[in-house]
């Protein structure tokens, strides 16, 4: 076992580097990913080491990034696209949903689209509008895509490598406000959880918190702060496919569940979790599944985002409410 303490951004960088070393067909492409190393430095130094043919500074055209990545994949490459910010993925929405997601099925399985689309997502960094969005539900709603979110440096390192070797297109969400959090990273992938598994991030017996990406840390802090109840935190990691077994097993044990995400609650990913849990754990539940998330509004100006984003108190408030039944 060898570990190294890295920031999440650095862990992503090392994971990408490893993937590029392992497979000469892996190419990294996006706006400012070359000389600059990406606005979050995730691709720092890759162009210097792997050359301009494999680390491509693209035109400022997101549809073009994904559309040409599809073409490169059809030619046998494994493109890893960076969408600079969550709010800029929408010009590429058509290419992702009508082309990338469906091409395997449309070709009766003859075409493989191993494209990874990296999206720094979520708020909490005091940014201007379009830099704090959580668009995951748009993609989990689209069959043919795998959608994952990492929450910590070790998973960032592992999951990006797994996503790149995955034969399906993967939408890879990175919690941008956690880029600079440091933690020990397990460099040996041999014992890593598969890409499509949820993991129990903290064991508990009274309530299950379900979260992914930036909200996992918030939930862990909430669990830590609660001195009365034993709170379990499940890191969903893979939003599509959902690792139902791990989620249901936890909720059946605790009987109470709160889903936490930054995205608006209405029609959000949490609605799917709540519905499935209600359907499959009905007799185990002590109270309804509650959801904590963003409000059903456009993302507010950053001076208001502390109200909009779920925090420790809002999570524990929901935990309290699960005891009101």
């Amino acid at each position: 076992m060898s570990t190294e303490t890295l920031s999440l951004s650095r862990a992503m960088n090392e994971g990408l580097r490893k993937a590029m070393e392992n497979d000469p067909k892996v190419v990294v492409m996006g706006e400012d990913v070359g000389k600059l190393g990406g606005v979050f430095r995730v691709t720092d130094g890759l162009q210097k080491d792997f050359g301009e043919a494999r680390v491509i500074d693209t035109p400022l055209a997101e549809s073009g990034i994904v559309g040409t990545a599809i073409g490169l994949a059809l030619r046998g490459y494994r493109p890893v696209c960076e969408i600079q910010f969550d709010g800029f993925v929408f010009p590429a929405f058509n290419q992702i949903t009508t082309q990338l997601a469906k091409m395997r099925m449309r070709s009766l399985g003859t075409l493989e689209l191993p494209v990874v689309i990296r999206i720094p997502f979520g708020g909490g960094i005091g940014a201007v509008e379009h830099h704090s969005e959580s668009p995951e539900a748009y993609f989990t709603h689209t069959g043919g895509l795998r959608v994952v979110a990492c929450s910590n440096p070790s998973d960032a390192y592992t999951m990006i490598q797994q996503a790149i070797t995955c034969p399906d297109p993967v939408i890879f969400f990175e919690p941008k406000r956690r880029y600079w959090d440091k933690a020990p990273v397990e460099l040996d992938l041999a014992n890593a959880a598969p890409l499509d598994r949820a993991v129990v991030a903290r064991e508990g017996t009274d309530v299950t918190l379900l979260a992914y990406g930036p909200m996992v840390k918030t939930c862990l802090e909430a669990a830590q702060a609660d001195e009365e109840r034993s709170i379990e935190v499940v890191d969903i990691r893979s939003l599509n496919p959902l690792d139902e077994a791990t989620v249901l097993e936890s909720v059946r044990r605790t009987g109470r569940c709160v889903v936490v995400h930054e995205a608006p609650v209405f029609s959000g990913y949490g609605a799917e979790l709540a519905a499935r849990i209600t359907e499959k754990c009905f007799y185990h539940l002590e109270s309804p599944v509650l959801r904590v998330g963003g409000f059903s509004t456009p993302y507010p100006p950053s001076r208001l985002e502390d109200h909009y984003l779920p925090d420790l108190d809002r999570v524990l408030d929901a935990v309290d409410r699960t005891y009101e039944w």
Partner: peptide, 18 residues
């Protein structure tokens, strides 16, 4: 979807270059 394939062809051509 009108015109989407022009980008696929462009990416494919980039693969040919590589």
């Amino acid at each position: 979807v009108i015109g989407s394939q022009t980008l696929h062809a462009t990416g494919y051509a980039m693969g040919i270059q590589r």
